[in-house]
Amino acid sequence: MSHQPFEKWLFSDEPIDPEESEALEVHLNQCEQCRELSTALDQVYETISTVKTPEPSPGFTQRWHQNLAAYREKQQERRIWFFILGLFTIASLILLSLFFINLSNFNESYALGRFIANVSLIAARFNNLLNIARSITRAFPILIPVSLTFGVGLLSVSFALMITWFSSIISLYQPVQERG
Protein backbone atom coordinates (compact mmCIF):
# COMPACT_ATOMS: atom_id res chain seq x y z
CA MET A 1 0.00 0.00 0.00
CA SER A 2 1.27 3.46 -0.86
CA HIS A 3 1.64 5.74 2.15
CA GLN A 4 2.06 8.92 0.12
CA PRO A 5 0.87 11.64 0.28
CA PHE A 6 -0.66 10.62 3.64
CA GLU A 7 2.65 10.30 5.46
CA LYS A 8 3.64 13.70 4.11
CA TRP A 9 0.41 15.24 5.44
CA LEU A 10 0.93 13.50 8.76
CA PHE A 11 4.42 14.80 9.47
CA SER A 12 4.29 18.15 7.69
CA ASP A 13 3.41 21.34 9.55
CA GLU A 14 1.58 22.70 6.50
CA PRO A 15 -2.22 22.96 6.89
CA ILE A 16 -4.26 20.52 4.77
CA ASP A 17 -7.65 21.30 3.19
CA PRO A 18 -10.87 19.49 4.28
CA GLU A 19 -10.75 17.08 1.31
CA GLU A 20 -7.20 16.05 2.12
CA SER A 21 -8.12 15.71 5.77
CA GLU A 22 -10.98 13.37 4.86
CA ALA A 23 -8.73 11.32 2.57
CA LEU A 24 -6.16 11.06 5.38
CA GLU A 25 -8.83 9.83 7.80
CA VAL A 26 -9.97 7.16 5.35
CA HIS A 27 -6.37 6.05 4.83
CA LEU A 28 -5.71 5.92 8.57
CA ASN A 29 -8.74 3.65 9.02
CA GLN A 30 -7.37 1.26 6.41
CA CYS A 31 -3.60 1.42 7.03
CA GLU A 32 -2.38 0.12 10.39
CA GLN A 33 1.18 1.33 9.85
CA CYS A 34 0.13 4.97 9.29
CA ARG A 35 -2.44 4.75 12.10
CA GLU A 36 0.24 3.61 14.55
CA LEU A 37 2.56 6.40 13.44
CA SER A 38 -0.21 8.98 13.77
CA THR A 39 -1.03 7.78 17.29
CA ALA A 40 2.68 7.77 18.20
CA LEU A 41 3.09 11.34 16.94
CA ASP A 42 0.07 12.47 19.00
CA GLN A 43 1.61 10.77 22.05
CA VAL A 44 4.90 12.58 21.43
CA TYR A 45 3.09 15.95 21.20
CA GLU A 46 1.16 15.13 24.36
CA THR A 47 4.35 14.20 26.22
CA ILE A 48 6.11 17.38 25.08
CA SER A 49 3.22 19.51 26.32
CA THR A 50 3.05 17.83 29.74
CA VAL A 51 6.71 17.53 30.79
CA LYS A 52 7.94 20.14 33.22
CA THR A 53 10.21 22.93 32.02
CA PRO A 54 13.58 22.44 33.71
CA GLU A 55 14.83 25.45 35.66
CA PRO A 56 18.31 26.47 36.74
CA SER A 57 19.22 26.25 40.42
CA PRO A 58 18.86 29.52 42.41
CA GLY A 59 21.68 32.06 42.11
CA PHE A 60 22.19 31.65 38.36
CA THR A 61 22.73 35.38 37.80
CA GLN A 62 25.24 35.66 40.66
CA ARG A 63 27.15 32.73 39.19
CA TRP A 64 27.09 34.49 35.83
CA HIS A 65 28.62 37.63 37.39
CA GLN A 66 31.37 35.46 38.92
CA ASN A 67 31.98 33.74 35.58
CA LEU A 68 32.14 37.12 33.84
CA ALA A 69 34.77 38.32 36.36
CA ALA A 70 36.80 35.12 35.81
CA TYR A 71 36.47 35.54 32.03
CA ARG A 72 37.76 39.12 32.25
CA GLU A 73 40.71 38.08 34.40
CA LYS A 74 41.58 35.41 31.86
CA GLN A 75 41.34 37.95 29.03
CA GLN A 76 43.64 40.30 30.96
CA GLU A 77 46.22 37.54 31.38
CA ARG A 78 45.94 36.72 27.71
CA ARG A 79 46.56 40.37 26.82
CA ILE A 80 49.70 40.41 29.03
CA TRP A 81 51.03 37.30 27.32
CA PHE A 82 50.29 38.78 23.89
CA PHE A 83 52.14 41.94 24.94
CA ILE A 84 55.20 39.92 26.07
CA LEU A 85 55.05 37.86 22.88
CA GLY A 86 54.83 41.08 20.85
CA LEU A 87 57.88 42.54 22.60
CA PHE A 88 59.80 39.31 22.05
CA THR A 89 58.86 39.31 18.35
CA ILE A 90 59.94 42.95 17.92
CA ALA A 91 63.26 42.27 19.70
CA SER A 92 63.82 39.18 17.53
CA LEU A 93 63.07 41.17 14.39
CA ILE A 94 65.52 43.90 15.41
CA LEU A 95 68.24 41.33 16.12
CA LEU A 96 67.57 39.55 12.85
CA SER A 97 67.69 42.87 10.97
CA LEU A 98 71.02 43.74 12.62
CA PHE A 99 72.33 40.30 11.73
CA PHE A 100 71.33 40.66 8.08
CA ILE A 101 72.70 44.21 7.88
CA ASN A 102 76.07 43.01 9.18
CA LEU A 103 76.01 39.89 7.05
CA SER A 104 77.53 41.79 4.09
CA ASN A 105 80.58 42.70 6.25
CA PHE A 106 81.04 39.14 7.47
CA ASN A 107 84.51 37.65 6.92
CA GLU A 108 84.64 33.87 7.59
CA SER A 109 88.42 33.48 8.11
CA TYR A 110 88.56 36.53 10.39
CA ALA A 111 85.57 35.27 12.45
CA LEU A 112 87.16 31.78 12.76
CA GLY A 113 90.48 33.32 13.87
CA ARG A 114 88.66 35.46 16.52
CA PHE A 115 86.75 32.42 17.75
CA ILE A 116 89.91 30.30 18.17
CA ALA A 117 91.71 33.22 19.90
CA ASN A 118 88.78 33.72 22.33
CA VAL A 119 88.59 30.01 23.16
CA SER A 120 92.35 29.89 23.81
CA LEU A 121 92.12 32.99 26.03
CA ILE A 122 89.24 31.49 28.08
CA ALA A 123 91.17 28.19 28.44
CA ALA A 124 94.33 30.07 29.58
CA ARG A 125 92.34 32.11 32.14
CA PHE A 126 90.63 28.99 33.45
CA ASN A 127 94.04 27.29 33.79
CA ASN A 128 95.34 30.33 35.74
CA LEU A 129 92.33 30.21 38.05
CA LEU A 130 92.94 26.49 38.69
CA ASN A 131 96.58 27.15 39.53
CA ILE A 132 95.60 29.95 41.95
CA ALA A 133 93.04 27.63 43.61
CA ARG A 134 95.63 24.84 43.93
CA SER A 135 98.15 27.21 45.56
CA ILE A 136 95.53 28.54 48.04
CA THR A 137 94.39 25.04 49.04
CA ARG A 138 98.01 23.95 49.56
CA ALA A 139 98.66 26.97 51.78
CA PHE A 140 95.28 26.78 53.64
CA PRO A 141 93.87 23.16 53.60
CA ILE A 142 90.93 24.19 55.83
CA LEU A 143 89.43 26.09 52.87
CA ILE A 144 88.55 22.84 50.99
CA PRO A 145 85.51 21.77 53.19
CA VAL A 146 84.43 25.44 53.57
CA SER A 147 84.39 26.04 49.81
CA LEU A 148 82.68 22.68 49.21
CA THR A 149 79.89 23.55 51.72
CA PHE A 150 79.51 27.01 50.16
CA GLY A 151 79.34 25.52 46.64
CA VAL A 152 76.70 22.93 47.60
CA GLY A 153 74.67 25.63 49.39
CA LEU A 154 74.84 27.91 46.37
CA LEU A 155 73.74 25.08 44.07
CA SER A 156 70.78 24.22 46.38
CA VAL A 157 69.60 27.84 46.48
CA SER A 158 69.87 28.09 42.68
CA PHE A 159 67.89 24.86 42.30
CA ALA A 160 65.15 26.06 44.71
CA LEU A 161 64.88 29.36 42.83
CA MET A 162 64.60 27.49 39.54
CA ILE A 163 61.76 25.27 40.91
CA THR A 164 59.89 28.36 42.21
CA TRP A 165 60.26 30.05 38.85
CA PHE A 166 58.99 27.00 36.97
CA SER A 167 55.96 26.53 39.30
CA SER A 168 55.00 30.20 39.02
CA ILE A 169 55.19 29.99 35.21
CA ILE A 170 53.00 26.84 35.23
CA SER A 171 50.40 28.39 37.56
CA LEU A 172 50.29 31.51 35.36
CA TYR A 173 49.50 29.38 32.32
CA GLN A 174 46.65 27.52 34.07
CA PRO A 175 43.09 28.74 33.31
CA VAL A 176 41.62 31.10 35.90
CA GLN A 177 38.68 28.80 36.82
CA GLU A 178 41.04 25.87 37.52
CA ARG A 179 43.01 28.01 39.91
CA GLY A 180 39.79 29.07 41.65
Binding site: S12, D13, L37, A40, L41
Partner: peptide, 20 residues
Amino acid sequence: VKSRLYRARQALAKSYLELE
Protein backbone atom coordinates in the same frame (compact mmCIF):
# COMPACT_ATOMS: atom_id res chain seq x y z
CA VAL B 1 14.02 24.01 8.63
CA LYS B 2 10.74 22.58 7.29
CA SER B 3 12.53 19.54 5.98
CA ARG B 4 14.44 19.05 9.24
CA LEU B 5 11.27 19.39 11.31
CA TYR B 6 9.48 16.91 9.05
CA ARG B 7 12.32 14.41 9.39
CA ALA B 8 12.51 14.95 13.15
CA ARG B 9 8.75 14.42 13.67
CA GLN B 10 8.94 11.23 11.65
CA ALA B 11 11.94 10.01 13.66
CA LEU B 12 10.27 10.87 16.98
CA ALA B 13 7.08 9.00 16.04
CA LYS B 14 9.00 5.95 14.80
CA SER B 15 11.24 5.86 17.89
CA TYR B 16 8.20 6.22 20.15
CA LEU B 17 6.50 3.34 18.37
CA GLU B 18 9.59 1.14 18.65
CA LEU B 19 9.89 1.93 22.36
CA GLU B 20 6.23 1.09 22.92
